[in-house]
Design a protein around this nucleic acid. Structure first.
Length: 767
RNA sequence: GGGUUGUUAGCUCAGUUGGUAGAGCGUCUCGUUUACACCGAGAAUGUCGGCGGUUCGAGUCCGUCACGACCCACCA
């Protein structure tokens, strides 16, 4: 059958793709020569519930080019494919689906049932993105498809946690963390987006205790007195009035002469029946605002540091949903105890956390509602800093002077959850952390020494900057979908980190045995643990059993790990670690990582740290970072802007080749990637051009009789000699370009060769 | 505030170690007896952001200014 005038991408792609998959052209080691060098790439695992977007299309095209290039030359290639469970994102999607279906909520159905739903959803939608990658033409090893929650992966994750815990690289602590009140979980620093919003700054008066007053003197830069007045208060400013309920002190800079007379004195905390001290700390900036800062240790990162230094109690004001606490004892009882603590009564972290110092009238209010109330109440109490304002009565035209509270309108940077988009609350909670400071060294050294090369080089600077200033990584999430933390607690608050419950019991038993306690007591506890351990395997419910016997059960930490903790192990986890599999030996460390510059911290840096910490090897030799794919005007693609280009629609309209060629041609190092459909159409035309050159050849019987030829024909014609030379030149150019990861140069060379040499000249000669 | 990175033809961009500028798309003119109109032939368009410096010579190196993008941090 003669060739059509134009290439029918839709028909051909389906047919050829099936052939590739059936023939397993992407299987590990396909087309490898004996003793071939290995070339391996780990796909950045897309979210299991996701669908292909332009960024995926771009990213995977580049990987496919590299893999095919190496495979074609007989190297032993592996393109490891798989998906990520994406804790928050997936849990969010499933909860939304449940709501849409008017099904019971996550909390109503409980953990087990909910997780069953998530697995159901995963099985239903998890194939989508994999099938879309196939449509793109990616030549992954489909038989090796991995998932961060399946196969050996969970065991590997747990093993790493336990090992890191045992090495002292993971610890638990009550720290101020970023709390997402929508998902009701802690999140890491990286998952917080700071966005500038319109904010207000209120100014409050904290009245000195005991009716005291002082001379408040303000000087200008030359030291000339510009204000002197007798004050019975200190003025503080805040953008978050509701947090004042938990203030532990007012801080001023030690060099601030204005407040020197009152340092150490007490002030009345407005709306609260409490006194707090005026302390000094380096943190307040004397040139900003009044120079005095209210210190709310439990709800502000800077204040927390001050509170730690000054040994101030940090009173938590909000619940997990960001509402003012309604739990605990009545306010009078709590505040009475707080006064005792302030007077020096011994206390504990746990007791301080249990004290609810939110006055009754604010309890249960949403934090933003509480803010309004607090402002209104402070104004009503006459404790707002005020200014004289002239107003004109519109009807009578008479002027009047009156006092108004000072409220500054100012832009403030506010933290938002990157998934939930709600305002993040600093919250004092118990969490698990990776002590990144202890494992960052090798990750820095590997790039400094060139063991791992980051391209473009500017990426190295970003990498260094972040790692050199690394903060502890909060890895626990109060979610259900994810790797549950392998830690068990006994009734006395001890915890046991182990890879199984049985091991945890063993650890608890060992601990009980090693205690210096009366023999009888140890025995009772031991007995309880052994009994409990035995009974855990039986059908008895815990409730029934605990009622009938006094045994010591261990309970598992309900939290799960940050998704990036597990995806940080993607390179070794997908290759079968901790078993020393042939694949691990053959393909690790991997050759190249192709990924977006936006996840250099989330993923690249963490994979470096984790692999080096676990197997003492870099995970990849080259990191190729590319920019974000934008629309034709350079705008970020987003659903709300309506400028999202769906790669599948592009494939439908222009064919996968056109999309892939456009991707390659745009892949210069650095910069943003502006995706223009006109350009894709241009490369579609290029495909047609090539197609027609072949069609010309076919019409002239070029294929006839040559399919079975065993020896190449003798080349004598000048045109033939010339085009063979051009082909060799182009081959060299493309190889050199790909060696340097210059996909654009390679694409350009091929384009010019096919169109400018083969079609414009060689085909014309042939005529 | 710190960092990274841009500013080259109407648009999107390339330009390796310094030697008086390139591609695709778009525009204009001409062309349709069969490989291809998703085409062919041809054309126009740039003081390479501004200023200063190094050099025989700078889009390319140095300094500085302007505007933009992004990232990180942050003043209550």
């Amino acid at each position: 059958m003669p060739m059509e005038k134009t290439f029918n991408a839709a028909e051909a792609e389906a047919r050829i793709s099936k052939l590739w998959i059936d023939q397993k052209v992407g299987r590990a080691g396909a087309n490898a020569k004996p003793d071939a060098e290995a070339f391996s790439i780990m796909i950045p695992p897309p979210n299991v519930t996701g669908s292909l977007h332009m960024g995926h299309a771009f990213n995977n095209t580049l990987q496919d080019i590299l893999i095919r290039w190496h495979r074609m030359r007989g190297h032993d290639t592996l393109w490891q494919v798989g998906t990520d469970h994406a804790g928050i994102a997936t849990q969010m999607v499933v909860e939304r689906e449940l709501a849409k279906a008017k099904a019971p909520t996550r909390r109503e159905m409980g953990r087990e049932a909910f997780l069953a739903k998530v697995w159901e959803w995963k099985d239903q939608s998890g194939g989508t993105i994999i099938n879309q990658l196939k449509r793109l033409g990616a030549s992954c090893d489909w038989d090796r498809e991995a998932f961060t929650m399946s196969g050996n992966f969970p065991d590997a994750v747990i093993k790493v946690f336990v090992d890191m815990y045992n090495k002292g690289l993971i610890y638990r602590g009550k720290r101020l963390v970023n709390w997402d009140p929508h998902f009701e979980t802690a999140i890491s620093d990286l998952e917080v987006e700071n966005i500038e919003v319109k904010g207000h700054m209120w100014h409050f008066k904290y009245i000195l205790a005991g009716g005291e007053s002082y001379d408040y003197v303000e000087k200008d830069a030359e030291g000339t007195v510009i204000l002197r007045e007798k004050r019975n208060y200190i003025s503080i400013a805040t953008t978050r009035p509701e947090t004042m309920l938990g203030d532990g002190a007012v801080a001023v800079h030690p060099s601030d002469a204005r407040y020197a007379p009152i340092v150490g004195k007490m002030v009345h905390l407005p709306l609260c029946d409490r006194l707090i001290p005026i302390i000094t700390d380096e943190y307040p900036d004397p040139t900003f605002g009044s120079g005095a800062v209210k210190i709310t240790g439990a709800h502000d990162f800077n204040d927390y540091q001050v509170a730690k230094r000054a040994n101030l109690p940090c009173y938590r004001l909000m619940d997990t949903r960001g509402a003012m606490r309604a739990d605990g004892a009545p306010y009078e009882v709590s505040v009475a105890r707080a006064r005792e603590i302030a007077a020096g009564s011994p206390t504990s972290e746990a007791e301080v956390d249990s004290l609810n110092l939110v006055p009754e009238k604010y309890r249960g209010l949403d934090r933003f509602e509480a803010r309004k109330q607090v402002v209104a109440d402070i104004n009503a109490a006459g404790l707002a800093v005020t200014v004289l304002v002239k107003s004109i009565d519109e009807e009578t035209g008479s002027e009047a002077l009156h006092l108004e509270p000072v409220v500054d309108n100012k832009p403030i940077m506010q933290p938002f959850g990157d998934r939930s988009k709600v305002v993040i609350e600093p919250m004092l909670t118990d969490q698990w952390f990776v002590d990144t400071g202890l494992i960052v060294g090798p990750a820095l050294d590997a790039v400094r020494s060139g063991d791992t090369v980051i391209m473009p080089q500017s990426g190295e600077r970003t990498y260094f900057h972040w790692l050199e200033n690394i903060e502890p990584w909060c890895i626990s999430r109060q979610l259900w979908w994810g790797h549950q933390i392998p830690v068990w607690y006994d009734t006395e608050g001890n915890h046991y980190c182990a890879s199984s419950e049985a091991e945890a019991y063993q650890l608890a038993l060992n601990k009980a045995r090693s205690r210096n306690a009366p023999a009888s007591e140890i025995t009772a506890r031991e007995e309880g643990l052994v009994k409990a351990q035995m009974l855990r395997g039986q059908v008895l419910s815990r409730e029934v059993f605990t009622e009938e016997s006094q045994v010591a059960f261990l309970t598992r930490d309900p939290d799960v790990l940050d998704t990036w903790f597990s995806s940080g192990l993607w390179p070794i986890g997908t290759l079968g670690w901790p078993d020393n599999t042939p694949e691990l030996q053959r393909y690790f460390p991997t050759s190249a990582l192709i990924t977006g510059a936006d996840i250099i911290f989330f993923w690249v840096a963490r994979m470096m740290m984790m692999q080096l910490a676990v197997v003492d090897q870099v995970p990849f030799k080259t990191v190729y970072l590319h920019g974000l794919v934008r629309d034709a005007k350079g705008k970020k693609m987003s659903k709300s802007l309506g400028n999202v280009i769906d790669p599948l629609e592009i494939i439908d309209e222009f064919g996968a080749d056109a999309l892939r060629f456009a991707n390659a041609a745009m892949a210069s190092l650095g910069g943003t990637l502006k995706m223009d459909t006109q350009r894709i159409a241009g490369y579609r035309n290029f495909g047609t051009k090539l197609w027609n050159a072949c069609r010309f050849a076919e019409m002239n019987g070029v294929w006839d009789g040559h399919t079975t030829a065993t020896t190449p024909p003798q080349v004598t014609a000048t045109a033939n000699l010339w085009i063979i030379g051009e082909t060799a030149k182009t081959l060299a150019e493309v190889d050199a370009a790909l060696q340097d990861y210059r996909f654009d140069t390679a694409a350009d060379a091929l384009y010019k060769f096919v169109w400018g040499k083969v079609c414009d000249w060689y085909v014309e000669f042939a005529k």
